[in-house]
Design a protein around this nucleic acid. Structure first.
Length: 586
RNA sequence: GCCGACUUAGCUCAACUGGUAGAGCAAUGCCCUCGUAACGCAUAGGUUAGUAGUUCAAGUCUACUAGUCGGCACCA
């Protein structure tokens, strides 16, 4: 999907279109006051204050119509430069513009304004020459947005739109938006019976149906095997813990508002655990460790509960209970670089297995100004941030540095996966932590017999299994590779009377090999049953008629194709096992 | 949590400005025994998310509650 921000021409055009939108709003709602109207990856928006007047999606066509009208008039867009003092005078009745102007640096003696017909807006520019150039646009949605992105401020109304330089590109983009809806994991999850929710159970608490749990178990088995091969040991710990545990770890101070309220039982207070680090710290603390034992790698598919804001919940991507593919790696300071690299290697190895090719790395750093959020130890932070930088540079993968995105205890590397259509999802992560081991007094005995504090790496390849399933459903449009498919193959005798016995024979053959196979010998036309197998996105459909019965062969077609291939039973078994083993994407 | 919209049968959706819920698919039964995306016929299925209210009359109007969706804020 196009990124408007990265295209200079479209970026200017969209920015001008935001002004056009503001002008149209001013015509239709003269009392409107304007905040800012920037370009974003998906087009542009403008934040407006309309007092008590509420704009809904139904009002958008009328605004668009007014925009078209202004565009037809074809006024030039004229730049004007004035001093800060003049600007303050000129916009004195507009509190929002005054706010913007007064925050501008005194050294910026020149402030620019753009005027098109009866509308003037404060703006750095640049813009297109005339509003006539703005023809191929669409207003997409409205929503509330806090003034200055701060939830403590009042809410303005935000109107989103997008603009192209020709009608075909606009149509194409709108089609892509429609396609994105079709591959939404919430829609696919319902259609393919992956998961459900129930109002009575509670929102954000998904329940995996038999199909979904098959996907879940396959992913769990897969990642645990990968981890075992990298020397991880898996543990099982309780999904709740004493409040004191989180006070010790420091999580309580930072996140108590998003923990499910503590419950008091026999003088002890418990919370449902929002993360597994403290439990794993205690597992490390269970014994004495020598420098020879490190790295120690403790992994768990661990259930966590977080009291996410209701508005943040989304399918199985953002929920109130989920299972992290979590692990904590305890290393000596010298081992940090190597171990960090092994984690990145594991992540990339898994992506290769799963055919994931579109992703970007983000290095999340602390904001040095924010002394409240981050653990106060500049030396530690610098050291940690540099270690990660070095690993990334050594591996040679490009990454973006994100200031102020680190966890309170340390910097982290996040991997953003980009589905072919739709929003980016953060899945894999690797975080460096010098802080928790100290808070829990964790030690190892070094070569010289002295006690040292280990460093911890927190990491997750799938993030949460839940979120990964959401991502992979969208990525594959619900056509899961054979190894993950709830039903791997479906068998259809052409006639339920004539080949039922042979269909049963093939069914038993595959079932004996632990292939998830189903027999559809219903009294329906082949076309009817075939249509159903396509709707269910079953990767392999086996069709058995008199010819196959006669020759003891298997004819199959793959999802989305029309060709039929005929193999002997042995050949077919080898073929399907190979697909499963290689995790081939359909 | 905030702003806004939405919620009708298992699913997808209808029902003009208020007049007492309807279709396709799925399900069930019969028929058909069929070679690559829907054979035909019949049956059953709904206190229109919930609660209160306005009205002679509420799916439709109002209020509240719950959930969903689009954003904002949040995301260890």
């Amino acid at each position: 999907m196009i990124n408007i921000k990265e295209n200079e021409k479209l970026s200017i055009m969209n920015h001008s279109c935001a002004h056009l939108l503001a002008q149209a709003i001013k015509h239709l709602y003269p009392e409107a006051k304007f905040w800012v109207g920037p370009v974003i990856e998906e087009g542009f928006y403008y934040d407006v204050d309309l007092g008590d007047k509420v704009i809904t999606e139904e009002d958008l066509p009328a605004i668009e119509k007014e925009m078209k009208k202004i565009s037809k008039d074809g006024k030039r867009i004229v730049r004007e430069e004035i001093t800060k003092k003049e600007a303050l005078e000129r916009f004195k009745d507009d509190p929002y513009k005054i706010d913007l102007i007064s925050r501008m640096d005194e050294k910026d003696t020149v402030i620019s304004m753009y005027t098109q017909g009866d509308f003037t807006d404060l703006c750095r520019g640049p813009h297109v020459d005339t509003v006539k150039e703005l023809k191929h646009f669409k207003l997409l949605k409205v929503s509330g947005a806090y003034w200055k992105n701060d939830a403590k401020n009042k809410m303005l109304q935000r109107i989103y739109g997008i603009c192209f330089d020709n009608e075909e590109d606009l149509e194409k983009h709108l089609q892509e938006l429609a396609d994105a809806k079709l591959r939404d994991h919430r829609k696919l999850g319902k259609e393919l019976e992956i998961f459900m929710t129930s109002d009575l159970v509670g929102k954000g608490l998904p329940m995996y149906l038999p199909n979904g749990y098959i996907v879940w178990q396959e992913l769990e088995n897969y990642i645990k095997e990968k981890e075992r091969k990298q020397g991880y040991k898996h543990v099982l710990t309780p999904p709740l813990g004493n409040v004191e545990l989180y006070k010790t770890s420091g999580h309580w101070d930072h996140y108590k508002d998003s923990m499910f309220p503590a419950m008091k039982v026999e003088d002890e207070e418990f919370v449902l655990r929002p993360m597994n680090c403290p439990h794993h710290m205690m597992i490390y603390a269970n014994g004495i460790h020598s420098y020879r034992d490190l790295p120690i790698r403790i992994g768990e598919i661990a259930r966590d509960c977080r009291f996410e804001a209701s508005g943040a919940l989304k399918g199985i991507e953002r929920v109130r209970t989920f299972c992290q593919n979590d692990a904590h790696l305890f290393v000596t300071p010298e081992q940090i670089g190597d171990e960090f690299k092994r984690v990145v290697d594991l992540i990339l190895d898994c992506y290769k297995d799963l055919g994931i090719t579109d992703y970007e790395f983000e290095l999340s750093l602390r904001d040095k100004e924010d002394t409240e959020k981050y653990y106060p130890d500049d030396e530690m932070w610098d050291k940690a941030e540099n270690v990660i930088r070095k690993v990334l540079d050594d591996i040679g993968i490009p990454y973006k540095e994100m200031i102020g995105e680190a966890a309170f205890y340390g910097p982290k590397l996040d991997v953003q996966l980009k589905p072919a259509v739709g929003n980016k999802i953060t899945v894999s992560t690797c975080q460096l932590d010098f802080c928790l081991p100290m808070r829990f007094d964790l030690t190892y005995v070094d070569r010289d017999g002295s006690k040292k504090t280990p460093v911890v790496l927190h990491r997750a390849v799938f993030g949460s299994i839940d979120r990964f399933i959401a991502y992979y459903l969208e990525e594959t449009k619900g056509v899961l590779p054979v190894w993950l498919a709830p039903i791997q193959a479906i068998i259809m005798p052409v006639s339920s009377e004539h080949q039922a016995d042979y269909a049963k024979e093939v069914n038993d053959l595959l079932a004996k090999e632990d292939i998830r196979v189903e027999l559809d010998a219903r009294n329906e036309k082949l076309g009817y049953r075939l249509r159903e197998s396509q709707i269910k996105k079953i990767p392999i459909t086996i069709i058995l008629g008199d010819q196959e019965k006669e020759n003891k062969t298997i004819s199959y077609r793959l999802f989305g194709t029309k060709e039929t291939t005929t193999l002997s039973q042995e050949e077919f078994l080898k073929y399907i096992k190979d697909l499963i083993k290689k995790r081939t994407r359909m």
